[in-house]
Design a protein around this nucleic acid. Sequence first.
DNA 1: CGTTGGCACTCTGTGCGTTCGAGTGCCAGA
DNA 2: TCTGGCACTCGAACGCACAGAGTGCCAACG
Lengths: 338, 338
Amino acid sequence: MLSERRLEVLRAIVQDYVGTEEPVGSKALTERHRLGVSPATVRNDMAVLEEEGYIAQPHTSAGRIPTDKGYRLFVDKLAGVKPLSTPERRAIQNFLDGAVDLDDVVGRTVRLLAQLTRQVAVVQYPSLTRSTVRHVELLSLAPARLMLVLITDTGRVEQRLVDCPSPFGEAALADLRARLNSRVVGRRFTDVPPLVQDLPESFEADDRGTVSTVLSTLLETLVEEAEERLMIGGTANLTRFGHDFPLTIRPVLEALEEQVVLLKLLGEANESGMAVRIGHENAYEGLNSTSVVSVGYGSGGETVAKLGVVGPTRMDYPGTMGAVRAVARYVGQILAES
Amino acid sequence: MLSERRLEVLRAIVQDYVGTEEPVGSKALTERHRLGVSPATVRNDMAVLEEEGYIAQPHTSAGRIPTDKGYRLFVDKLAGVKPLSTPERRAIQNFLDGAVDLDDVVGRTVRLLAQLTRQVAVVQYPSLTRSTVRHVELLSLAPARLMLVLITDTGRVEQRLVDCPSPFGEAALADLRARLNSRVVGRRFTDVPPLVQDLPESFEADDRGTVSTVLSTLLETLVEEAEERLMIGGTANLTRFGHDFPLTIRPVLEALEEQVVLLKLLGEANESGMAVRIGHENAYEGLNSTSVVSVGYGSGGETVAKLGVVGPTRMDYPGTMGAVRAVARYVGQILAES
DNA sequence: CGTTGGCACTCTGTGCGTTCGAGTGCCAGA
DNA sequence: TCTGGCACTCGAACGCACAGAGTGCCAACG
């Protein structure tokens, strides 16, 4: 176990490095933090910290920088979550309150998060697998062509074209619409399939084909949309990443375009609280020099989706965590109201 | 007017510079292109081209690079549009054919374009102001709360919550839905307002407030959505931009997040054909070292939206223009089919 | 035993002078 | 009008020395 002072030294190193972006040496440390000991003592402590793998030197005879393990210890033991200031909170609320629809909420959230943290923000749309059906609408576009519209309780709308195997009358359409809604409205998506399985049987033989087609399209939509959408913003902040530019930034941009990768990253967020993945803790190789701070948000007591930011491992963890948590809370509130 | 050979020299300079990314000198030129004259002659021609402002030297005693004016001449007079190869065309068609809905079409298009051109792709969603109403749906969510769903002929769906001033019965709702649809289906958005103006009068006094609210929400949606959405992709290609990295890339990333700026860029596309904005021709300052190639696409003979790519001024114009044009055509076809 | 001051050592970054080579401009001649 | 030749320029690359920051180690001290 590391002594109190060594932890203090580690904290100082992390803070200074995050601030200056340059390896920090023993002398500078004692000058900027009142540790109450001499540089020589700090040097000894640093040697220990290095031996334990918490810090490293880029080259012999340079200052130290924290390793992923060092940041991990810092986040777990040394740093709290820095709450936002009251003006900041007020600004968040005002900004989010102006949203008119779900797209707008997500869009504003992503911009807000990017601005607050000065990093790349990622916001997942409220998940369909967790939400319930608010309404299913069927429209006749042509004799043998329908449009299926699915509306969720989070305000999301998905539509699909359905080509019917045979023409489908208005009466049958109204019938199907009514029955479908009476069975699925208010239900969770995952509960829907068994509830509609027997529907075709209650229709005329001629119409069964169409009913089946509609149902399978509906179920397909539920599944497909479980590949959930997300929105990103603040990519310009990537330019503040570091000196060794193109090498670091390229895989990050690539990752940001791969929805699957991003969803996985957010998905790793611990259900209950905030998740911080530091450097190599990220499964995706391209993000080895970045950290991801993510958290779930929800309208009720329930988590419906996640949001987070992606930044350099050298980031202001307390501040970032504070911003992410605060934004998640306010978004939850907004969703609950609508 | 420049002589034939001097134009040929300019073309050679552009081609070489695009390929090598390095200033090109007289000797290298004569070696790589059979101009039939000696380096000395080329030097004289280059001096003239420089005087006229088509090329410039980064430093004395370095090779020449094309100026924006040089690229402009190249694009206007010297370069054709390079058609895609048959396999490429087939690949495009196959890839786009798999799309299931409008989001998917746009998403695939943007990825395709980014991949083909190895640049940043921007695709605008089909414009609402030009499209027509396919259907308006009204759903009752609570006694005094409705959901309005607008479906366009391009397959786009927009929804809005409506809080009614007073409860609204199912019968009145069905009535309103029917009347609304009979008036606006098939109409262009811009034509809608006068067509619905007198609707409230034909309802019971109690319901007029609600009807008016619904109508104004509908009209609002039409206007708001004229701020059209777009999708971008291929930002990782920005890393291939040049040496002087962060400085160039930052404003570009910023511009890409500003929908307004991007829409303006695409908007400048000439209605009829392809538009190429080179360097300083772009109004937005941050894009001074980039070129934008854009073109409209449409389902009928009509342009419903635009798409294009953003890349360094040093880009392969013929190839890029070919890809952009081809993709636009295929997207138009796909839209016409659905 | 932990802490401290001192000291030699090891790097990197920087400034400077030199060299090398690609490329230019100009001129005289075909 | 084109061509070959020639002197000139300037940036990139290289070597080198030097300053500065930082380290590791050691002996001394409370």
